[in-house]
Write a protein that binds this DNA or RNA. Sequence first.
DNA 1: TCAACACTTTTTCTCGAGATTTTTATATTT
DNA 2: AAATATAAAAATCTCGAGAAAAAGTGTTGA
Lengths: 247, 247
Amino acid sequence: MSDAALHHSAAPDAAMEPKTLVEGAYRRLRRNIVEGVHPPGEKLRVEHLKEQYDVGAGTLREALQLLVTDALVVAQGQRGFRVAPISLKDFEDITRTRVLIETEALRQSIALGDDDWEGRVLAAFHRLSRAEERLDDEASAREDWEERNRVFHEVLISACPSRWIQHFQQILYRQSERYRRLSLFRNPIPRDVHAEHQLLCDATVARDSEAACKVLTEHILRTLDAVRHMPTEFLNAAENGPKVRQA
Amino acid sequence: MSDAALHHSAAPDAAMEPKTLVEGAYRRLRRNIVEGVHPPGEKLRVEHLKEQYDVGAGTLREALQLLVTDALVVAQGQRGFRVAPISLKDFEDITRTRVLIETEALRQSIALGDDDWEGRVLAAFHRLSRAEERLDDEASAREDWEERNRVFHEVLISACPSRWIQHFQQILYRQSERYRRLSLFRNPIPRDVHAEHQLLCDATVARDSEAACKVLTEHILRTLDAVRHMPTEFLNAAENGPKVRQA
DNA sequence: TCAACACTTTTTCTCGAGATTTTTATATTT
DNA sequence: AAATATAAAAATCTCGAGAAAAAGTGTTGA
């Protein structure tokens, strides 16, 4: 279970702050891996990272083990840890599975969401739209956009009562984000993304399950295309070797 | 990610033996939790368990963290670890999500499986049937049956190319098994389970996706009924612990 | 009787150091 | 020069001890 326990977790995870050093290191590490600070395939040497994250070796190891089950880090027998590698095949898998999970979640959400949920959807969409307007101007807007995009997708399915589906959605979204951030390293976020979000928001509030799921599916698949057109170096140069070479 | 990393893991996890003490402790702990040796809600004190599992405190903590992400153990802030509690609501969620995941996996498996896969399905079914015959006679047959039932379900979807779907299926199957073992603590395995497996096997080898998924869905839902008719003490008396008072 | 406070005990959390294993570098031989 | 073998270096894995926090216990006072 990522950070918040699957059971009895009232508040969203990002809100409450870590109660333990392990959890703190876990979150910072996870963020840095998703954001590409630790690129795919990079060797994660405990001796070096303990200084960078300012925790003991054992503590850092525990945080790494948490990331192993999240599939963001792989543990190789007795040869330490390493950032999970990436591949087009893996991202295709992630994308298809995410479509399966997230459309089902949206379906349930639309069927069961109340007026309050509708309000939250509109609010999240509005916040996202505002961030999209600022994308070209300020450089720092990218981080805002990423955060608000995540929240928008989360709110969309927040009326889905299944904790497990939401859990799997979180895991897959994080995986997707890692790929997307790589593909958007140069390419800006295309204009029509906003239009897609608009359609998705409209169909959802109109309680049109089929239309909403259709839009969501295309929306998710669009990211796959972006990664497909990504320079191949990004995907294969990930198999970083013994001598760690920074990107 | 349970025990085998999601990426590049050639052999099934149960086959290869642990390369590290952490992984060994992780597997033994997981098995004991699924089998109910550590009942739901039980406090998992590191100081006591380190002797039972014959490893150091830090090592045991790492193993526990792995189980946290598997949702078999919950970590409570600074109040240690505890076996994940159970509830009928949770099991309904697990069951429905499992239907979603496992039917999709079966669909893909049927669509893409080759002759070799068909053979493995028949072989797994045969082994399971033999174990079912011995269920009444020998007492030790229960463990055999559990193992072969798991393998049968795994083989059914083994031709599904999605690593992520298989990963989620594994997690959910383990969760289900925990509940099933509780519900079967007294009640024996009913006779008609064999008939269901037979139907499932036949429809699968006949490449009849719709029929196979229908049978599989009913098969999974049947376990939910069994748990529903379970004495309520099992579900609520789970909040074990020294002198635990509910919040 | 019950609540609040201080004290003791237990448990968790964290860190640093030693033992294996893997990896790198060097030297020797064919 | 290539390949094997030996030695050195680095990193991992593991354990036990100390600091921080929680739970438990008993006493006092209204």
